[in-house]
Design a protein around this nucleic acid. Sequence first.
DNA 1: CCAGCAGCCTGTGCGC
DNA 2: TGCGCACAGGCTGCTG
Length: 303
Amino acid sequence: MPELPEVETIRRGLERHIVGKAIVGVELRFEKIFSGKVEDVIGAKIMSIRRFGKGLVIDLSNGFSITAHVKMTGQFVYFGEDRKNFHPNLSLPTDLPNKHTHVIFTLNSPAERHAGKPEAHPGSDPGQDRLTKGFLFYNDIRKFGWLKVVKTDEVFRQPFFKGLGPEPFSTLTLPLFKKIVLKSSLPIKILLMDQRKMSGIGNIYANDALYASRIDPRRKGNELTKLEQKVLYTAVLEVLTKGLELGGASENTYIQVDGGKGSYQDHFLVYGKNGKKCLRCGNLIERIKQGGRSTFYCPTCQS
DNA sequence: CCAGCAGCCTGTGCGC
DNA sequence: TGCGCACAGGCTGCTG
């Protein structure tokens, strides 16, 4: 369930593992999830990785970018030349590529010409894999995610990027948050998850932020008090920060670029806890449907 | 314009 | 054991 913390963790992993390398090959195993031209990325060097909401942008040296959205089950995993993963405690795919691998990028490092140079501290440099060849796998069990090659200066012409609301850690200020909430008669939980109103928040963090704020997820945005608006804003940033610190929530298929897992799933406040005791009052957490999705809340604490 | 909902997919876990 | 079904959930595109 990649949301902002998970996607940002992926972004950081890609930044560490693939920036500086050149794309020397692309194997498309399932064409439907890929659009744009493969030729436009061949030979280009990877310059930077950006994230907007839950979307990723891999900027290349030739004026093109690979935009991507992993939706629910997409994974970017970087393996070294020996096709072994970098994470020491890897517990997920060791068999890549597997039947869920839809794209394989072969990467080559320009730094290879220095291969004969001895390392000052062999094995101790966290960026050492930048000096190796490798493979970047895009896996996606449910095939909801997509990769699209576009010109870098046209990234924001895409409907997805064009329509994104403000970012929780930068452009979504408290005054703006208050304004957005005040203007909407949507249930506050639906509002938090609306990527056009504000970006990056999905089901897990929306549930937990509302629980932390003691606000009933069914309340309308424009019916929140000024205090509740502020408390909720703070809670949103807090749960996202916590998720980020823990490397995201690996409850299902989400893994990091090096194959490691996040641990926010061990710190859920209310998400997925229906029938279990509320951490605050001990009464039972309930599950309801909002917009076709599960909402978890404590009927006693959240009013 | 907005709200609501089906569709896209596969794996998992449940009841019978 | 296995079948059918609900569920997971982000986003698009359609309808009213």
